[in-house]
Simulated scan of single mutants.
Amino acid sequence: MKKLLLSVLSFTVLLTGLILSPSNSSAGSQWVDLGKGYKARLDGPHGTANPKYHVHVQKNGKDIGAENMDGTKSHGMTLKNVPSSVVKELKGTSEYKKHKKKHDNLENSKAKAKKINWLNPLDSITIIMGVAVAAGIAFKAWSIATWKKFIFA
C-alpha cells in the first residue's frame, strides 16, 4: 500500500510539473492600462507580508493605491486615493474579473481546508494529493532522475 501511495504521489508531482509552468502561475503580476496616465498591477499572494490577491494602481509610475481583492488594505494602502472613475474602469476589465475569481477560489479553498476531518482517510488523501500537485509546480525544474533520488533515498 505504501509503495502504491508513493507511486501515485510521484506520478502526480511529475505530471503537474510537466503540465503547469511558472508562467501559468497565479502568483505572477499583470499590468492593465487604465488610460489618462493610470495603470494597475494585479498581483497574486506573495510571502507572509501579503498572502492575498491584490491590486496596485499607479498614476504616471507612482503608486497611489493598493487594495486586496476583498477590499482590505494591501501594503498599508486602499484605493481611496484613486478616482472612482478609475476604480470603476479597473473593476470592469476582464483581467480584474479573472483576478477576482482566483481570489474567490482561494478563499473558498481556505474555507474548505478549515473543515477537513483529518481522521477521514478520503480527506487526508485529498490533502496529500494537493501537496503533491503543489510540489510538482514548485519543483518543475527537477528532472525525473532527481525526483527518483528524492523519493527513494
Rank of each mutant, 00 (worst) to 15 (best):
M1V: 13
K2M: 13
K2G: 15
K2R: 10
K3C: 14
L5G: 05
S7I: 00
S7H: 03
S10Q: 02
F11K: 08
V13D: 07
V13R: 08
L14D: 02
L15S: 11
L15M: 11
T16F: 08
P22G: 10
S23E: 15
N24W: 10
N24P: 02
S25E: 09
G28E: 08
S29E: 13
Q30E: 08
Q30L: 07
Q30K: 03
G35K: 02
G37D: 06
Y38D: 07
Y38W: 08
K39R: 12
K39I: 02
A40S: 10
R41T: 08
D43C: 15
G44A: 14
P45Q: 14
H46N: 12
H46E: 14
H46C: 15
T48K: 09
T48N: 12
T48D: 13
N50S: 14
H54R: 06
V55R: 01
V55F: 03
V55S: 05
V57L: 04
V57E: 03
K59W: 08
N60A: 12
K62T: 15
K62D: 11
K62C: 07
D63R: 05
I64Q: 07
I64P: 01
G65T: 04
G65D: 07
N68C: 15
M69Y: 06
D70E: 06
T72N: 09
S74L: 07
S74K: 03
H75Q: 13
G76M: 14
G76I: 13
K80T: 09
N81K: 09
V82G: 02
V82A: 06
P83N: 04
K91H: 09
K91N: 08
G92K: 06
G92H: 07
S94L: 11
E95P: 00
E95R: 01
E95W: 00
K97A: 06
K98L: 12
K98Y: 01
K98V: 04
K100W: 01
H103V: 00
D104Y: 00
D104W: 00
N105K: 07
L106K: 05
L106T: 00
L106G: 00
E107V: 10
S109V: 05
S109A: 12
K115G: 11
I116L: 15
N117H: 07
N117M: 11
W118G: 01
L119K: 08
L119F: 02
L122C: 04
D123N: 12
S124E: 09
I127W: 04
I127K: 05
I127T: 09
I128A: 15
V131Y: 06
V133W: 05
V133D: 06
G136A: 04
G136K: 00
F139Q: 09
A141Y: 09
A141P: 03
W142P: 02
S143C: 11
A145F: 12
W147V: 15
F150P: 01
F152C: 10
F152Q: 12
